[in-house]
Amino acid sequence: MEKEKLLEIRNLKTSFYTHVGEVKAVGGVSIDLNKGEAIGIVGESGSGKSITMMSLMGLLSENGKIIDGEIIFEGRDLAKLSEEEMQKIRGNEIGMIFQDPMTSLNPVLTIGDQLMEPLIKHKKMSKKEAWDRAVQMLSLVGIPSPESRMKQYPHEFSGGMRQRVMIAMALACEPKLLIADEPTTALDVTIQAQILELMKELKDKINTSIILITHDLGVVADVCDRINVMYGGLVAETGSTRDIFYRPKHPYTWGLLKSIPNPKKDEKERLKPIEGQPPDLLKPPVGCPFADRCEYAMKICMQQRPPLFEVGEGHKAACWLNHPDAPKVEPPVGRGETNE
């Protein structure tokens, strides 16, 4: 299968300069994305998921800075573009959906005006063309009577409808890449199901690439082709969705999979939380960031950061257990499958 790369993040490092010191939010992250592919980024809060995406979009706050690395999008390094150049890409080639649609929509502008603005600006459409396209987008995301909805304000829409408007807006310019940061966390499961079906359709029908950030493992299992598990500002494991669920190779991934209830099981099993706290990114540990919560930690884990070991085709895990000299450990989750 010939796959065309759309995005390549290489060794991205992003820090925030605060009054207490440098917060190393992203400590060297590499992520690949092919055209027409959906990838998931999972990990607990503070693991650097959103900041990785903000770095990519050029939306870091004043005190944040990309220290190192490249973000190659269609041959251009986004890390080196000016704000002016980024504005041409944001909302045009790259669309975004955030967790809280109310804060991302402008309360004093009609839905129609907000949908038409980027079309007039980026696609140089006339008002009439932009209106027609906006109506078309609203009906695509399943908003009934789109013509009359165009004239309404955000507060007249329910949470689920606002989220769909955000998606319509993100897609109006037919972006090559859609970034969705916890797009369904605040929604009911029934609305969530509608949005997820819509995202899958876009991927299949118009070949949009998707980066989906979520802490819901059910959502990634459903939508994503590949998954990146982040921990402490680094990628802990990356692989196909089946790699991550059926043959995970990192103790943090094991912990994540063990901590969720299995809705298929009738007898009640006790949940198994990951005890302890994530690392302090003001002074990240020299070794493996997961070491002080990891029940398999060895001496080397405290001293040296584990590299991303290749454990299968397109499957990598940053854990010393995958070193040929490490003791063999039976994973507590997955299907115990070896790599295909």
Binding site: V189, T190, Q192, A193, Q194, L196, E197, D216, L217, G218, V219, A221, D222, T241, R242, F245, Y246, L257, I260, N262, P263, K264
Partner: peptide, 17 residues
């Protein structure tokens, strides 16, 4: 509509939207 944290089951599941 519950997302199932298992890729094979998610793929085979029929959802009532």
């Amino acid at each position: 509509a519950i997302p199932i944290p298992d890729p094979d089951e998610a793929a085979s599941k029929k959802r009532i939207v």
